[in-house]
Design a protein around this nucleic acid. Structure first.
Lengths: 387, 387
DNA sequence: CCTTAGTTAGTTAAAGTCCCTTACTAACGA
DNA sequence: TCGTTAGTAAGGGACTTTAACTAACTAAGG
């Protein structure tokens, strides 16, 4: 529990005022005072400090009310007061970007993961970051910090990637290594978790309290916002949706430990769809191609995909039954064809859950990883700017 | 967000001191100061107030350290400073009890639900409560408030039972009705949720952050503590474990909306075990009798129970995969035979989850409902005494 | 046994920080 | 000029803290 002293309440109220401005700009000192129930003199004092520190700006006078009176001074948030760097380390590429405090991406870079995986990955990243800062004419002191999304189980407190198969990282001390290249604080987190944070901040889940984000691609992973906060589980491995069991008969003969994948991802992931159709066709077919075949009326593709969607639907239904979320967001490679199977997916979920729940597709494009990583930084870092 | 002022920090620090005493008693003013990092004068002042208000007591001198010095004055929590009433409204009986602040039940009463369900249930409850208070020589002012556990979906904020089939309550305004009979504050919550709160407070899940409580009886329900707090979901219906789907083939022909039960409870609950064996034996058999038959070597009982345990195991595995909890607690009628199927249950869960997780049986006996309801009150009510 | 130095517990007094209330000035419409 | 609203100044209250105190105890030495 937190101890209360003067500094603590000062900070509390300062954040309260700043958040009020962020959410209701433009707004006057007087209105802030009314809204957050802090006396006018206190608000004025805090506003003065925020102005001095550059977090907010005065923006011309507002309009008097109908009954007359002095015009209020409009205050607005200054999203360029500082910047945050978001990094998405994926299996194929490492994308990085600089965003302002509103999450707008100001600069973007990427490089191939495999070229630098064995060595100098962070050195290369440092190069990209320097180049972006140069472009934007920013210095290190303008940067609050960096968030990094990684495809694996991560201990965010220690900045340690516990296991990321696609990068071949095991107990890899990312924060420690990154601190050798960057002077600002760095936070690392599983990429599905950063995704759901991004969606909560600026995407489909804006200001919702309970959100599930499901990434269906090579495997199936998920992240969740619970009671407004990211939930990580007791061992940082909550949301392992790929391990769900939805088939009593087949599961019995199934051995996750041998096969290296969970049950659900062995029947409903993008790669499983690819494998199954490849087996039928006796030639390599990717999941993307499978969806194209399906649309063209290919029967074997239809069968495989329909079963995959059905199993995925069961998995989502289970998730929803347990969590009762406001929203389920589908992301990952297989979400590209979301519109094609959306209807049947929703039907299955509705059928097996006590309460209905919206299911939508992820909103972001290639910037998803960046925005999520930035959201992670803002969520974790103890600054006046909070998610 | 909370606004900070003098009263707020005072209250914060007061709670901090009181909790410190509750957790580490006996403890001296000086030690408190060191532990919670509040200056000695402040601690002394707060302690003086807590003594005056009766929450704590001085208890003789402690021992000096090896290096000499004045003996510390030991402070201890006074669990009899106030009392809380816990009520468990079940399908068969309404149990009520008075506990002290440590959760020890000081008095207990019960009456048959069916006798009073149609009318005067709360009037009857009031009688039991008065009688208990008389026995304990307590007055209304000694009672902080009342918690009530109910077998149904409940909106705790409004004190409204949304749907409790076994009581035939729909949108039943329990708090409003209770307020006509009791002068202290009343909180209502689903009984599985009160159970998990009770387990977190004084049971198997003491001081753990992520706990799942599963009640297997007539149906299958569950409650969960997430990040240390009870999670209710967006529509107060999180934890509907009975609706999990674990069987691809059978689920397809299954229609929860028609059958009134979820899929998992149709194959793994106590009543489903009873039904299935009754069908085989062509005579009514209860779940309890089924377990007895099983132990005696009855083959059909074995088959039915083993399948039920298997399905339940799948359900728990799914739960664990998604939540990554510290602990799973099994309660409800079917948990009485827990030791008989514990091994196979654990084996299944281990097999299908990425991370292993302890599974134990619920700790409480008939007082479970009372303690849980009291825990609910303490969790919800904004008093200096917090869960 | 008595004395004294060293140590720890708890209190007193003064000062700092934050907030609030009250009363003010500033600015505007009618 | 009056009524109204925005924002500021001054004084006071409620916390906290630091620094210095008193109280109470152990242990060692004469």
């Amino acid at each position: 529990m937190q101890k209360g002293d003067a500094a603590y309440i000062k900070n509390l109220n300062k954040q309260l005022v700043l958040n009020c401005i962020r959410n209701f700009e433009p707004i006057s000192r007087s209105q802030i005072s009314k809204r957050i129930q802090i006396s006018k003199p206190s608000v004025s004092l805090i506003v003065e400090q925020l102005l001095e520190e550059g977090w907010i700006e005065e923006k011309g006078p507002g309009e008097s009310t109908i009954s007359g009176g002095r015009k209020p001074v409009h205050l607005v948030f200054n999203p360029k007061a500082a910047y945050v760097i978001g990094v998405d380390i994926g299996g194929t590429k490492v994308a990085s970007g600089v965003t302002c405090l509103n999450g707008k991406v100001q600069a973007y870079r990427e490089f191939s993961t495999s070229d630098y995986l064995s060595k100098d990955l962070f050195k290369r990243l440092q190069k990209d970051v320097s180049s972006m800062l140069d472009d934007l004419q920013l210095s290190n002191s303008d940067i609050l910090g960096m968030g990094i999304g990684v495809p694996g189980v991560t201990n965010v407190e220690q900045g340690l990637v516990l296991d990321a198969p696609s990068l071949k990282w095991k107990r890899y001390p990312v924060r420690k290594i990154a601190s050798e290249y960057f002077s600002f604080p760095v936070y690392v987190e599983n990429d599905v978790n950063t995704s759901v944070l991004g969606e909560q901040w600026l995407g489909a889940g804006k200001s919702l309290q309970n959100i599930i984000f499901i990434a269906v691609g090579t495997g199936i992973g998920s992240g969740m916002i619970i009671n407004g906060k990211l939930f990580r589980g007791s061992n940082f491995s909550a949301g392992e949706m790929g391990y769900l069991v939805t088939d009593y008969e087949n599961a019995k003969s199934y051995h996750p430990t041998y096969e290296g994948y969970g049950f659900l991802e062995s029947v409903a992931s993008g790669s499983s769809i690819g494998h199954k159709i490849s087996a039928v066709k006796n030639q390599p077919v990717t999941a993307k191609e499978a969806f194209t075949l399906w649309k063209k009326g290919d029967e074997s593709a239809q069968k495989v995909i329909e079963e995959a969607v059905e199993q995925l639907g069961f998995g989502i239904a289970n998730y929803v039954s347990l969590f009762d979320p406001d929203l389920v967001i589908i992301g990952g490679g297989v979400s590209e064809s979301f519109d094609d199977y959306k209807a049947s997916l929703i039907e299955i979920v509705e059928h097996f859950t006590p309460q209905s729940c919206k299911i939508v597709r992820s909103t972001f494009g290639k910037e998803a990883g960046i925005v999520g990583a930035v959201a992670l930084f803002l969520e974790e870092h103890d600054s006046i700017i909070q998610l």
